[in-house]
Design a protein around this nucleic acid. Structure first.
Lengths: 344, 344
DNA sequence: AGTAGCACTCTCTCTTGTTGAGTGCTAATA
DNA sequence: TATTAGCACTCAACAAGAGAGAGTGCTACT
């Protein structure tokens, strides 16, 4: 694509992002000093339309970028901005507190992201704990209930109340705790599966009763998480955009955001990349139309732990959002690393 | 108000609740077999309007209930329904699991309520823990961090990570735990304030260093909760109602629902009553128009612990909602009591 | 007191006309 | 050959006007 055509496409997209209205040849020629007349622009636009980068809502309207157009813009035209000092400060402040109670922390962080981007933000929590097990403690709560606390070398704390299928007294509980610690301390959290530990216990030939009890406890503990694995914030932001004047569209969108599985799927589109932009049709869900997402992964121990995404209209401010999200994911990853070093 | 007038008012309100359209004299006469002609109904309606129970959007439209009309309906006309077997089952099922991790539990429960009522549901979490302290345990996490776990006689578990302003070794931690337990075990959770405990510590003349440390820990522990004190679910339900076709109204509503303090205030309107209906103007917030709330309190130890509310258009289905909410609050209170007895 | 009849009011919908933004094409120009 | 000016054409958006229909209030009758 020749230089001038690129500039025309760029002008159309940026104008449309700013004003949400079809862009005419006149406006492009006037506002984006290309030094040529509207007629010339019209010819370029005609070509661009033929190639599928822009579309015409109806004959006598201006042009609107297509998904393909946005894709080209994001890949080739968009200038990467940097977050402002204020934005950087807001992000760093949000990360300054304790991130030990990770899920709880991310819930608040999600809010910060949605405010900064002014789009709905969503975070997929890590599927599994990362790092090595540093501490495992059992706190008896009640006859058949025990609070299991696990601290990982990442500095992230997990706890869960486990209903025991057997009575246990304090002495036995201590034994159980010792046994578990001997077994699992220092182990990679991701390998701490039920089946693995069960096998280990057998090999170690632990005393019969404790063995049985431990196995039962572990079975409960590593049962797939029931809690919400994704947090969302700021859906209201979507109301500000004219493309969501339509209640039906809005309803689709909000219903999607309330369906955990679908949000999870959207975020999964981020793959293993640091940062991904999914535009329109590229989104995993056809329930929402005219939307795009910017998805960034965050890492623990160099491994992808979860992802952060913001959803906007396809007409979203890619440049601003991408720069923010890059920074956010980078900072979050950095904080998690720092946390880890402190624990080690 | 004479019998027939009541029946007319009742007919208007129920029809309007069902169809969201102004109700004419003809419709009332036809559908709600009063045995009189539309002309007679018109006279009654004219009176009702004069007395402020109904309004006319414009001259040639039917009538619409006013806030005063709804109020009269809720207080005098509405037939109290009973939840269906299915509804009761759904509620009981939702309450069957563990309610130990109370905040987490309520988050899920809120979802159930919004689904059953098909209105947005909100729950105010207890401001303070209730009942007596049954167990207090300190789990060292990291040099200067400790996980404080408190189990109340209500069966509700609270935990918090506290950043200590001093280093502490394992031995000291155990001492601190013992000291705290000696002091606070069996105490009323509500009296466990920082200042109270500080005083007690002085009187007991606890060893100097432990005293200081304990006080510092307590100060952190009883610092006003920072977490979210209210959970909301099902805002999307509001999109189904024609009164929220208007985006501006919707925006107001959603912004309100995202502002924790305002939601808290709305729920506070429940006072000490078991169940309250707040209609239109009676709501604590003028940001939302044409809305009503049904608010029920739930109790621990016979004391109001928190409240559950659902928000709907003033045109909401009061009868259904009230019966559901009564049942929900009753069942929740019952479960909390049962929980408590098990612990005692 | 209740009812039938009727004129009146007002929204809603459909139609029509007008405006203006924007296009595509053609012919002139650099 | 690339660019531009000019012009006819298209189409959405808006406004004004005409019915239609629902519903009322009033009056006179039962």
């Amino acid at each position: 694509m020749d230089e001038r055509k690129k500039r025309v496409l760029n002008a159309i997209i940026e104008d449309y992002i700013a004003n949400a209205e079809p862009v005419g040849s006149r406006a492009v020629a006037k506002k984006y000093g290309l030094g040529v007349s509207p007629a010339t622009i019209r010819n370029e636009m005609s070509d661009l339309e033929e190639e599928g980068y822009i579309e015409q809502p109806h004959t006598s309207a201006g042009r609107v970028p297509s998904d393909k157009g946005y894709r080209f813009y994001v890949d080739n035209l968009m200038e990467k901005a940097r977050p402002t000092k204020e934005e950087e400060k807001a992000i760093k402040d949000a990360l300054a507190g304790s991130v030990m109670e990770f899920d709880e922390f991310l819930r608040g962080f999600c809010n910060v992201i949605s405010r900064l981007t002014s789009y709905p933000a969503m975070i997929a929590l890590p599927e599994q704990a990362r790092g090595k097990l540093v501490k495992l403690q059992l706190v008896p709560i009640h006859e058949r209930q025990v609070l299991v606390i696990m601290l990982a070398s990442t500095g992230i704390l997990r706890h869960k109340i486990v209903d025991l299928p057997f009575d246990i007294d304090e002495g036995e509980m201590t034994r159980l705790e010792e046994e578990l610690n001997r077994l699992a301390l220092g182990m990679d959290m991701q390998k701490l599966s039920y089946t693995f530990l069960q096998q280990q216990l057998h090999e170690l030939g632990v005393r019969e009763k404790i063995l049985e009890q431990t196995v039962q406890l572990l079975r409960k503990l590593f049962h797939p998480q029931d809690g919400r694995r994704v947090v969302i914030n700021g859906a209201t932001n979507m109301l500000a955009h004219p493309e969501f004047r339509d209640i039906e569209k809005l309803k689709n969108l909000f219903e999607l955001l309330e369906t955990e599985g679908k949000v999870q799927k959207l975020l999964d589109a981020g793959g293993e990349e640091n940062l991904t932009v999914a535009i329109g049709e590229e989104l995993a869900d056809s329930q929402i139309r005219d939307c795009s997402m910017v998805i960034a992964n965050y890492f623990i121990n160099g491994q992808r732990a979860g992802s952060i995404g913001v959803l906007g209209p396809t007409r979203m401010s890619y440049s601003h959002t991408v720069s923010l999200m890059e920074f956010i994911a980078k900072e979050l990853t950095a904080v998690l690393d720092k946390n880890k070093k402190e624990i080690d």
